[in-house]
């Protein structure tokens, strides 16, 4: 890569920062909404075998739909704005997060729950103070994958007027401005990479703590494999 091609980043730090910020708000905002939906959903369907299979089946099918297609299909409902992109992102992240919430809850040693019951904890207390901290490493592992996916899809979201770093890519292609394409690709790759690495670090830290707390080395091994998972 020639140095001259980096000129867009060097010459337009204000544009870069604005688009980066838009991208982060879009991806992380959607991720947080997705987590707020998936944790209760996973908690509710956990342990109900048929319901879990049905919900995961539907969510898996939604994940198969290409993100561009999903956003186009949502377009008449939400219009040409960030809302369409956010809804698509939330739908997309569900399968990853719900799967991990359920896997995490399944891996919690039942005797720990019994002990919490015996101490007189209510259901809500048990969830917030016992189960949630224990499933945190698995949940963060899901959040990591979801963050990478959300960053990627938010890039395509620029087509639908959501802003973000994808704007540089689409403008660059239509104007034949290679410096914009390079600026957009590099920055979005760096963003996805740094989200991935920082959450990976958090995952490792939390995992150690959880293992010590639970004295249950199996917890971390129960993270669902993402071999069959597509990252957009």
């Amino acid at each position: 890569m020639r140095l001259g091609e980096m000129r867009y980043i060097v010459n337009n730090p204000d544009v870069m920062l604005r688009l980066l910020w838009q991208h982060i708000v879009l991806a992380i905002g959607a991720l947080l909404i997705a987590a707020a939906v998936s944790i209760p959903l996973g908690y509710f369907i956990h342990g109900k075998q048929k319901l879990t299979t049905a919900v995961l089946g539907v969510l898996g099918m939604l994940y198969t739909i290409p993100s561009l297609v999903l956003m186009i299909l949502l377009l008449p409902l939400f219009g040409l704005n960030a809302k369409t992109v956010i809804v698509a992102l939330v739908i997309y992240c569900q399968i990853i997060l719900v799967r991990n919430v359920i896997a995490g809850l399944d891996a919690v040693n039942p005797s720990i729950i019994e002990a919490a019951k015996g101490m007189g904890m209510t259901k809500a207390q048990r969830f917030i103070r016992v189960q949630l901290p224990l499933i945190m490493p698995v949940l963060i592992a899901g959040m990591r994958l979801a963050a990478v996916v959300a960053t990627a899809i938010a890039t395509i979201g620029a087509m639908f007027g959501a802003g973000g770093l994808g704007t540089l890519l689409f403008n660059g292609i239509s104007q034949g401005r290679f410096d914009k394409i390079i600026a957009g690709s590099l920055s979005v790759a760096l963003l996805a990479g740094s989200l991935n690495w920082s959450l990976q670090y958090a995952e490792k830290r939390l995992d150690k703590i959880a293992r010590i707390r639970a004295m249950n080395p199996a917890v971390s091994q129960k993270t669902p494999s993402h071999l069959g998972m597509r990252i957009e």
Binding site: A152, T155, L169, F178, G184, S185, A189
Partner: peptide
Amino acid sequence: NGVRVIPSLAILFLMVP
């Protein structure tokens, strides 16, 4: 795994230059 993190749109468009 490092490459997989890069959004597909970026990989596609980055080829053009």
